[in-house]
Design a protein around this nucleic acid. Structure first.
Lengths: 161, 161
DNA sequence: TAAATAGTTGACCTCTGAGTCATCTTTAAG
DNA sequence: CTTAAAGATGACTCAGAGGTCAACTATTTA
């Protein structure tokens, strides 16, 4: 009845597989697909879109892959949702009534407006970091051994591309 | 981002045009379509479905039309939603995670479960009567004279369409 | 019984989200 | 320079929601 689109769920799950930190910690689409069960070809397009939206950095070719464009705690679920579904218009009436507004509200208007705000607030406050902690997909990254603890995210250079 | 299906909105609006009470107060699909702006052929199928679901009674042929199967205050928005969208599974994770459950909950699980319950409760408590009062579509019924002229929208073609 | 009225029903159309495939292009290793 | 690895991308398929048409059936009245 009420939920995010399947693709948005995919995006959130895929992003939990990534790390922040330059070229050292790239994760490949193939590994994300394997870990999440998201079909690889579809994932590929999804990742590209997330790159366009500025949430991740992408590197093509040999030893390519994906990484978060900023720390996981700086990416909210709202950021992800809007990147995939576009800015959500919070003004719509639950019943689809054209005539419903703050001035002339349908019986559900006040209730629904409050609920929407609660949900939006939660989506803005919840970050990738917390979801990733729950998921705990310890992805293997190209060029990086598993031995290193997840505490340090390679503070080598900064930025590329 | 979050809303009912368009068809469910149609159903709610269409039902606000109907009355409870036997053969005396039948309303025709054509009039509902005119009042709500819902395309007639689509409305026709919708009404049939609502009849199958037991929310309304239908009468075919000359002087046919539709009427509520029970009083408006005895029809909740949840009844309508379920009639159209089927029983809603309240168990699904907002993120679409398979592994999310009461036992192993994702970061949004508790919050989302509460929200769902709040929304469901509101949908169960809100009845057609209250929505109809807001909408105030004073439909004309077959076999009933317009003499009441209670509203301003007598037989003027009104707008829309 | 014939005609008019009004709901019923199946075929078909369009659009969008989801998913697949094949073929690019880019990048680094050898 | 060649090649293998990996992301990018356009064409295509598929299913479901929403919507349109036309033919059909049921009901009442003249």
């Amino acid at each position: 009845m009420l939920s995010l689109s399947q693709t948005t769920g995919y995006a959130i799950r895929a992003l939990t597989c990534l790390r922040f930190g330059e070229s050292a910690a790239l994760v490949m689409a193939k590994d994300i697909a394997e870990a999440t069960g998201i079909p690889l070809p579809y994932l590929s397009k999804l990742m590209h879109a997330l790159g366009q939206a500025g949430l991740i950095t992408t590197k093509r070719g040999y030893r390519g892959g994906f990484a978060l464009a900023r720390p996981a705690e700086a990416i909210s679920l709202m950021d992800i949702t809007e990147a995939i579904e576009g800015p959500n218009d919070n003004a719509s009436c639950l019943l689809g009534l054209e005539t419903c507004s703050d001035e002339r509200a349908c019986p559900l208007h006040r209730f629904w407006k409050q609920e929407r705000q609660r949900i939006e607030k939660a989506m803005c406050q919840m970050t990738l970091r917390e979801v990733a902690k729950f998921e705990a997909h310890l992805m293997k990254a190209t060029g990086v051994t598993e031995s290193q603890s997840k505490g340090e995210q390679a503070k080598t250079k900064s930025k590329s591309k």
